[in-house]
């Protein structure tokens, strides 16, 4: 299963891309671990995970249609 992850703000400076694709990620806990491994610098920044445009805090099951996004602290206005 392929999951596309949208990356925003300062987080995209670490991933060097606004979108990354991972395979075999079944839930958001696994995603966090994979991100941590691939981009150690991410652990130093605060961010939230959104699945289908809703912020999730508990572990959330992903499917191949899930839209996942990494959101750093907001700064609108």
């Amino acid at each position: 299963m392929q999951i596309n992850i949208l990356i925003f703000g300062q987080l995209a400076e670490i991933t060097r891309s606004r979108e990354v694709i991972f395979n075999d990620i079944n839930d958001t806990e696994t995603l966090k671990n994979v991100l941590q491994e691939k981009y150690p610098a991410l652990s130093e920044l605060p961010y939230l995970i959104a699945v289908d445009k809703e912020i999730v805090s508990a572990n959330t099951i992903l499917n191949d249609k899930s839209i996942v996004a990494l959101l750093p602290p907001y700064a609108g206005g």
Partner: peptide
């Protein structure tokens, strides 16, 4: 509206 949009809208400023 101003308070809520600053807290709830995913907008970033460099």
């Amino acid at each position: 509206t101003v308070e809520r949009l600053k807290a709830e809208l995913p907008i970033w400023g460099k």
